[in-house]
């Protein structure tokens, strides 16, 4: 464990808690893409299959449980909570996210580190995580303005993956056999997807104006 990875995990945790906080306190999911949340629940479900088989550390197991419970409860809130569900704008959240699942799965079948069920599911979860934010970014594009909590949520998500890139660089130089090209490339693609959002987020923050994404 290194500081970059710990900071990355804490930032990732913060992003999920910010979202849960928003939905739980103001009982609204306005501006949040259910599709992105469903993709994230799928990412964690397919990545943490080894939750009960490979014990790595208490921290690892605890964080996996937190991510699983929080991502599925966010999906539950938006889909089934009698008040929250009313604020879900399904007419705007129209990204056909199932079109992301199949290509990621096929790619995981072809490009992976080991052709085993667990490894393929793990690789699938990596590719899916790289594109999972797309429905949310499309929704932000559509609804033009975004409220602070949503902006912070996307910002923290991007920041966590950027910190992980620093973690991979650190591990590459400190652990002789640590080479995971698949992880690095998909993590890089994911961060680049956030890059343009970051640009506009910082612009709005610097000029102290409400975030406006270009059409």
């Amino acid at each position: 464990m290194n500081i970059f990875r710990l900071a990355g995990d804490m930032t990732h945790l913060a992003s999920v808690l910010v979202l849960l906080l928003k939905i739980h306190t103001i009982k609204s999911c306005a501006g949040i893409s259910l599709k992105t949340q469903e993709l994230y629940a799928l990412v964690f479900a397919t990545r943490y299959l080894d939750l009960f088989t490979d014990y790595i550390s208490l921290y690892n197991t605890l964080m996996k449980l937190i991510f699983l419970v929080s991502s599925f409860s966010i999906v539950w809130y938006i889909r089934h909570h009698k008040i929250v569900r009313r604020s879900y704008d399904k007419d705007q959240d129209t990204f056909r996210h199932y079109f992301l699942v199949l290509p990621c799965f096929l790619l995981a079948l072809v490009i992976n580190e080991k052709f085993t069920v667990k490894e393929i599911m793990w690789t699938f979860s990596l590719y899916l995580e790289a594109v999972a934010i797309l429905p949310q970014l499309v929704l932000l594009q559509r609804t033009r303005n975004i409220d602070n909590l949503t902006g912070q949520y996307v910002f923290l998500l991007g920041a966590y993956r950027s910190l992980y890139i620093l973690n991979w660089i650190y591990r590459y130089f400190t652990e002789p056999h640590y080479v995971h090209w698949i992880t690095w490339i998909s993590g890089l693609v994911q961060t680049l997807l956030y890059a343009d959002f970051f640009y506009y987020y910082f612009q709005s923050w610097k000029n102290n104006v409400k975030l406006e994404l270009p059409a």
Binding site: R5, D9, H12, D50, D54, I56, N60, M63, K64, F67, W122, Y164, N167, H177, Y178, T183
Partner: peptide
Amino acid sequence: SDQLDSHDEL
């Protein structure tokens, strides 16, 4: 499983 083989990151 040995550390490198299994993925130790979240």
